[in-house]
Structure formats: C-alpha cells, structure tokens
Nucleic acid binder design. Sequence first.
DNA 1: GAGTTTGAAACT
DNA 2: CAGTTTCAAACTC
Length: 594
Amino acid sequence: MEQREGGDFPPNKPTPQSEASPTAPADFPARKLVRQLDFTGFSGGPVTTSVEQPQIAKPRQLAPHPPQLGKLSQPPQMLFMSMQQPTQPAAPPPHPSIRSLVKPESPRARPRQTVNEVKDGTPKKQKQCNCKHSRCLKLYCECFASGIYCDGCNCVNCHNNVENDATRREAVEATLERNPNAFRPKIASSPHGARDNREEAGEAVVSAKHNKGCHCKKSGCLKKYCECFQANILCSENCKCMDCKNYEGSEERQALFHGDHANNMVYIQQAANAAITGFIGSSGYGSPPLTKKRKGNELFFGPTVKDPAHRLGQLQQATQVKASVPSSSFTGARSGNNTSVLSPSKFTYRSLLADIIQPQDSRELCSVLVIYSAEAAKMLEAEKRAEDSRETSLPSSTQPQESSQNQTEKALVADQAETKPEESGSDGVDVSKGRPMSPSTLALMCDEQDMMFTSAASSSGLADDNNVSSQLRDEQGVTETYAEQERIVLTKFRDCLNRLITLGEIKETKYSSLAQTHSGNEKDLTSNGPSNVKSETRNQQPVTSNGVSKFSGYPQKTSPVVVTSAHGAVSNIPHLRIIPAENGDVRTKPEEEV
DNA sequence: GAGTTTGAAACT
DNA sequence: CAGTTTCAAACTC
C-alpha cells in the first residue's frame, strides 16, 4: 500500500483517460456483463505493454478518475468504458476479442435492463450498484470491480468516490494483494473463434473463455449468476461448474438463444429453468432430475445418472455440431475436471426424431445430396452428349427436353442400379464440374462434401469439361441443366424429408399412445402398428406417385412441364441409398430401415 | 418491492 | 487449499 502509492498503483492514470474521454460517448455499454470486464477494454488497450501484466494494467484502470463525479459532464470513468462499447461501430476496438465479448446485445444481456444498456445506439446510464456493506470497496461492488467510481448508484456508505480516494486506493491495493489479477479481465479470448461463430451466429462468443472459470452448481450456467453465461461465452475447461449446460451443442442453451431471438423472455426463462431442473413436460425433455457431477467424479452419479446413452448422445450431438472443434471448446470445456465425459447435463432434450436421425444421418444426407447432384449432372451431361450426337445425325430433332428428361431419369435409375462406383465417382465429378452447380444446389451441400466434391472434380477433369461445357455454353442450356439437376436432387431430398416426417409421425403416435395408455394396452400398440404401416405406406406412395403433397413447391416452380416425369424418375430409386466411398465412389445400397 | 437463490469474493 | 461466511446481483413471487 503505502509503498506503491505513487508508483504503481495506479490510480494514477486518471489523466490519460480523461483525455480519451472526449471521444467517449456519454454513456456506455451495456452493463458489464461480468465484473471487471470493463476493465479490459480500457486496460488492455492499447498501450499497455502486455496483456499479461496484470498489475500494470490494473492500476490504470483502478485509477480513480477524476472528479468526474459531477455527472453532468460525462464521467471520466466511463471513458474507458466507452471504448468497449460494443455497439460502437466507429470506435476502433482496442481489444477486439474483448469487445466481442462484451457484446451488449447478447441475448441475455437484456433481460434486466438495469443499466447501461444501449438502445439504438443510445447508451443508457451506467449500471448502479446497490452495495450496502462493502462500502463499494470490494469486488462485490461492480463499480469497484470495474475500476470506476460509483456515480449515481444506490449504494450505502459508499467509499468508492473521489472523496474517499485514499480509502479507495487502499482497498484497491488490498484487493490486488489478494489477487493480482483482480482487476484484470476475466474473459480471455481464444485464438480461434471464427469458426465457432457460425453456429452461434452472433450469439455467444464461443471463442472467449473465462480465465478462472465459473463454479456454478445450480444454475446450469444458463443464468446470469454464471459469469460465463453473463459474458455470453461458453464455459470452458477452466470452469468447475456442475451440470453445465453452457456448452456448444447444448440444446438447453440453444433453446435459450432461440428464444431470445424471438424476444420472448418468458420463453427464455422457462427454457432455462426447464433446462436446469430437467423439468419439462412431455415435450421431450425427459430426463431425470439432476445429478450432478462434481469434480473428481460423479458424486451424485449414483444409479440415477443413468442414461449414459443420453449423455453420450448429447456429447455426440455437440461433437457433431462441430466435429472439428478442438477439445477446448466443447470437449475440453466439459472435461475440465470431471466434466469431460459426464459433463453435459443430464437433462437432455430428445427429439422424437432422435432415434431416427442419427448423427451420421445428417452427414449422409449431405453426401447424398452431393452425390445426387453429381449423378444428376452426370446424367444430364450424358444425355446432352447423346442428344448432341443425335442432333448431329438428326438435325431435325426438335424437342430435346422431354426426351432428355426421360433419359435422365432412366439413366439415373440405371446408374444407381448398376452400381458402378468408379464410374459414377469420377464421372459424376467430372460432369458436375462440367456443369457448375447452381448456387442453390451448392447451398444444399455441406462444406466438407462440397470441398471434397469440388476438389475432386477440379482435379479430375478439367479438360474434358472444357470441351463439353463449351458446347453447352448456351445459357439456356445451362439453365435447363441446372434446373434439371436441381430438380432431381431436390426431389430426392423431398422424398427423404417426407420419409422422415412419416417416421416421426409414427413415432409420435407410438409415444403418445404409450403415454396415454401406458397401462399396458397392448392393443394400442398393435393398433399403432397398422397405422404405422399406413403412414409408411402413405409416405412412400405419395413420394412415388404424387409425393408432391408434402413438398411440391420446387418441381412446379422450376419446370412445371417436367414435374410428372421427374417424379417418375425419382420414384424409381427411392429405396436406394447412395453411399459415397472414400474416394468419391458411389455405391448404391438398398435403403435400410431408418 | 420483498424475499429467495446463487455464486463470486472474502475470510478462516 | 478447502470450507465457511459475506455480499450483492439475479431471480422469483
């Protein structure tokens, strides 16, 4: 304490900041998501030597800001805060990472618009503390923790002001003594954040993580009690929380965010509660009430834990979501101590489709789409060629469309039936390449698949492509080709979706009946049986014949004329499953029961 | 708005 | 370092 006074401690720095102040908009950011978070911004900033130096940085922040108490003018304190302002587009963010963190708009941030929320870019007043016993000289006080003076707060016996600067300094020192990093930002951004963003899209900043990690026990880390959650970041391996649901892939978490989007706070809250309690109606959250996992191992995991499967499933899900995610994000997070395996919560939401759609199914779907696209392209190409040659021989040919369609269909069917891996693999690629896929088609493909597909294509047949494609240059032709190609692929896709729907319905029926007459009416089940069959039949039939019922939009739109034939074509291969081989080969296989 | 819950901070 | 207490925010009613 005394020693540092002048030096290090920083209080010092008021000045610099004040200078900066000018820029600062009067208000600022949203409430600090996490205490001290604010600090960062300003501390980290710019100048400081290294972020690592806690002490150094802090001082500055702690620095008492001048007497800005006079609220009239903008409080100097806020100066630095302003820098962090997320919404501020203009301000050059010293700390990008942090900034992102702070993002005010985080879904959750708003719930209690207590304070400095930013609305429409109009910041509101800073958050005011309500301390009563700490004199605002302990980290309990958000103002103090943030390194700012209390200003307009509702605190009692506040010493976090200019008048008590000396006392405040001492408190700061004491705090630093206890924990040199006390005023440092709690959230550290991780190197890789970009990729995560996509799923969370603006939601949580997955890339950052809490330095110390949270220790939540009951909130599932889905309430603002949790610092991670409050900061809008995922729990990380640093956390020692129990029953954490704040991890990527967490359905509870996603539910929250979705709800947020909808601006339905009630929903959010309920979702959170449900997630935490594991108390959700028949909807599907069916899991046992909590079991918590405590550090080393599953303290509570007794027998109840059950459902390892569920957990696994959850993990898988998450993993799936971002397969490539380094352990840090998901696995790591959970793994922290104990969590690794058990971590995900025990309450898992299980969709009725859960058993139907397996993790790999989605991937498969992607591959199927890609493959189909390739197949379709290939076919079309072949068709074109045939036609071309025909044309050459029979210059008078007039209506290529119809014939081409039929041919395409046939070719597709035949191709699949034949199961010629190599051929389809390479050819398909080639062809596809020859005919670049339309944006919409590409959109349907998974990145990976797409990559694989494209790369393979590019590697294999550029030359060929040129020759062929050049001929087809004619826009019309290309367009038609696209349309055709898409039609085929989408039709197939539609069929799959219909099937899924049907299966889901069946399952739903099954469960509902079970629930209602769980008394053991086997009859019900039996009755379901038939219905199932029915649905199934219904499903497949329509698909073949007039599957349009469920998803008919596309065909009609694209090529009304062809619709009928198209269906026919697709219908021929409804039960075949195309399985991509490692090298791009395509094999067909009888569709197995889902 | 009062009361409860929660988890970080402080303390032992 | 673990356990307990204190504290103020978050949350509920």
